[in-house]
Computed example of a mutant assay.
Amino acid sequence: MQSLEPFYEKKLTCIFCGKPFTTLRVRSRFSIPHQIDTDFCPYYRVGNYNPHFYYVNVCPECGFAFSEEFSDQFPRGSKEVIHAQITKQWIKRNFGQVRDIQQALESYKLAVLAASIKKEKNAILAGLCLRLAWLYRIENNAEQEKRFMGLALNAYEASYVHSDFAGTSMSELNVLFMIGELSRRLGQYQKAVLYFSKIIQHKDAKDNQNIVNRAREQWSVAKEENSHSRG
């Protein structure tokens, strides 16, 4: 019997130029993390593959990079800017094969640029920056990890203010948790405590015990870290 490959091909159509292309995805049985950080950064053992390497689709024709959470609507004038800033600069190459960490990082940076020009929802931009921070954490690049955690935090805060997480995979409680946890990781302990408290006191708290329990734990951690930082 033929053994199952870790990857499978997915056929896509570029939402910018309309050209078809194929990209890879990791089969779920080959992407089981053995450890997950408090901000949901996963770690994989040898023989398993990080599906976040393949989260971003990169069109080999025009260089537009997008996730499946991107809207296929483009604000007026954005297509011209994308053409000038991405497609005209693009050196054709294929991201549809097995990716190493550098290709994964590049795919996210292309997607962050595309999302910014396209004025994609803050919640989606935040998710891209967060995953970039995770990849830099795996690389032990603390400086770049911190930089992208900061960008993710700003985007989650904007998402919370404008409630633009509606229609994405994020709920209000998820967004509040990410603001709290990223604030804590960036040493902004009082802000972290405030946002974890918002979850505990939230009107939907009783229906979301899992995230409320997690918020209580991280609230305690942030309080302790805050007292240490003052001491």
Rank of each mutant, 00 (worst) to 15 (best):
L4V: 12
E5D: 15
E9G: 08
K11Q: 13
K11M: 12
K11A: 15
K11N: 13
G18A: 04
T22G: 09
L24W: 07
L24H: 08
R25H: 13
R27H: 11
F30G: 02
S31K: 07
D39G: 00
D39N: 09
Y43H: 12
P51Q: 07
Y54A: 01
V56S: 01
G63H: 00
G63C: 02
E69P: 03
E69K: 11
S71C: 03
D72N: 14
P75M: 05
H83W: 13
Q85A: 11
Q85P: 02
I86A: 01
Q89W: 08
W90T: 01
K92L: 09
N94V: 02
Q103R: 12
A104K: 00
L105S: 07
L105N: 07
E106Q: 03
L110A: 00
L110E: 00
A111T: 00
L113M: 12
A115G: 07
S116P: 05
I117G: 00
E120G: 03
I124W: 05
L125A: 10
R131L: 03
L135P: 01
Y136D: 05
R147C: 05
A152S: 14
L153T: 04
A158Q: 15
D164T: 02
F165T: 00
A166F: 11
A166V: 14
E172Q: 14
V175I: 09
L176P: 04
G180N: 06
G180D: 07
L182S: 01
L182F: 09
S183V: 03
Q188D: 14
Y189S: 04
K191F: 08
Q201E: 14
Q201C: 08
D207N: 13
Q209V: 10
N210A: 12
V212T: 08
N213R: 10
W219Y: 12
V221I: 15
S227M: 12
S227G: 06
S229Q: 11
